[in-house]
Amino acid sequence: MAQKTYLEAIRDGIREEMERDERVMILGEDVGAKGGVFGVTDGLQKQFGEWRVLDSPLAESCIVGVAIGAALNGMRPIAEIQFQDFIMPAVDQIISEAAKMRYRSNGDWGVPMVVRAPFGGGVHGALYHSQSIEAIFCHIPGLRVVVPSSPYDAKGMIIGALRDPDPVLYFEHKRAYRAIKGEVPDGEYTVPLDTANVVRSGDDIAVFTYGMMVHTALEAAERIAADGFECEVIDLRALRPLDRGAIVSSARKCGKVLVLQEANLAVSVASEVSAIIAEECFEHLDAPVMRLGGPEIPAMPYAPPLEHAYLITAEKVDKALRELAAY
């Protein structure tokens, strides 16, 4: 199997699916000749033409609204939002329209559309190129929200998303694009959009997380393993719906739980995971559920010391794990 970056894996998945299914198209800012600001769609316009890889005007509601219309008329569009931070003008189209189309039409109309957007910080992107606002969409029935953390999942989940009959928000951690490499099979495979993935087995502490934090958690887990504590690291990867069974199973097995994310904690994915554990694992817990996430500030600041102060590092995770271990 070939070693690919996370970014290459996404592009491979899109390209292969576009070769197989002529309904698949991409609509977004700079996706054409430039290949996207991060290069995810590099070369695709040359291969598939200016209609199927369409440089949109600088208008997010337009990108998503047009994609919804195209989806209703038989296409399988990818609406690329350049940064998750700039998705706000499209939120009406995503939440009021795409998410509700099937329900409000009593099953007559569906929106098979994928909205892709890079999220996350640690790249000197400051307030508006670093956010992690996935929780907004996780609240909404009718949407699927996924965040792959590995190149393998990135390819399998983009193909899975493009074959899903409902709107899928596919969020890519921008720091993973080139930093994360891994084995990616050639050809067609899908990864389910509703299952978590145990990426490290252990029975002392269950760590639930997603995105780049999966890699941070694995690093911290190795450190504490040296002291005899084995963490189970669960990559949630499907944020809506959450894999309730996997969450309950690992939490019961370990009895101690850390829920970890880059986003701030209030009313977030970590809140929901914690609530599921409180509801279903109370008698199996040996410590209160611990959450670790970004601070309650509007977004990540620019200056390196401030940015660093925001980020959840392996040191911070290690400290939290040791607190839990000692409880």
């Binding site: 509601s61 337009c62 998503v64 609204g65 047009v66 994609a67 919804i68 219309g69 195209a70 989806a71 209703l72 008329n73 296409m75 569009p77 189209q93 329209e97």
Partner: peptide, 8 residues
């Protein structure tokens, strides 16, 4: 916008 997408 849906109409624009339908026509597209």
């Amino acid at each position: 916008l849906h109409a624009a997408g339908l026509a597209l």
